[in-house]
């Protein structure tokens, strides 16, 4: 179900850089772990993001804006701001198995427990499965392919038992910042199916971070662009923000 993942990818973008040291670079696992640490190095976050869906010829199909509050790796509150027909719709994720959706149009809150799938997330080029990954080292076995200039190129294959619809990912990690700059998704026949590019490094609320990601589906000839418009980290968000009561009342 689409809402269980709740934009983990967007949260992964907002990260403070840290270089890959020689110690980290001794193994592919070390590189990936360091990079994952970089992208998940926060206590809490609050940010405003915009997703733009585009056709192959660059025509904008849809724009979605959300405000996301997150504490730790699991607790997350998402409020939809645009488009108007979903304004007010809110999602509360307490853990991977506990998600509540508040539907203002019905004045109802429903609990949703869903198995993540290969379905597209709201028509974007991200599947729920892809968006569910915050730390790649938990789900993939890395191998160092080469060092390409200032980037490490890793070959990631799903760990045994990990469900993933691609055969492998090629990941480019920036040596100086630890940022994951690019990912290419391949099937077993070595056909490149998607490319995810991250960039536009800016300083938001004092934190240097990548603020833009573009996922391109080479088969569908479609792309999705995510921009981080504003970001605050480590504000000390309280636990009572992440409750059903706040989900309904805090609209």
């Amino acid at each position: 179900m689409i809402l269980t993942t709740a934009l983990a990818l967007s949260t992964a973008l907002v990260a403070a850089p840290a270089p890959i040291t020689d110690d980290d670079a001794k193994t592919a696992g070390g590189i990936l772990k360091k990079s994952d640490d970089v992208v998940s190095n926060y206590q809490d976050q609050e940010f405003h993001t915009r997703m733009t869906l585009k056709t192959g010829d660059g025509k904008v199909e849809k724009v979605i804006e959300m405000k996301i509050q997150q504490k730790g790796q699991n607790k997350r509150l998402v409020r939809f701001l645009k488009p108007g027909d979903v304004k007010g719709l809110s999602v509360l994720v307490l853990d991977p198995n506990t998600t509540y959706v508040y539907l203002p149009q019905f004045n109802k809150t429903r609990r949703v427990a869903a198995h993540t799938s290969k379905q597209s997330f709201m028509g974007t080029d991200f599947t729920e499965q892809e968006m569910d990954i915050i730390r790649y080292d938990e789900k993939f076995e890395p191998a160092l392919v080469k060092k390409d200039g200032h980037e490490y190129v890793l070959w990631l294959t799903p760990k045994k038992g990990a469900e993933f619809s691609f055969a492998y990912i090629m990941m480019w990690i920036d040596e100086a910042t630890g940022f994951q700059n690019k990912m290419e998704y391949y099937n077993a026949e070595n056909v490149k199916l998607k490319t995810q590019s991250r960039g536009e490094v800016k300083t938001l609320d004092g934190v240097v971070t990548q603020t833009k990601v573009v996922m391109t589906d080479h088969i569908k000839k479609h792309s999705t662009e995510i921009e981080i418009l504003s970001n605050k980290e480590n504000q000390g968000l309280k636990d009572d923000l992440f409750t059903q009561r706040n989900l309904e009342w805090g609209k």
Partner: peptide, 12 residues
């Protein structure tokens, strides 16, 4: 409005 909310879950 309610229908539009349902569409949210269907798109994609």
């Amino acid at each position: 409005n309610q229908m539009q909310a349902l569409w949210f879950f269907l798109e994609g």
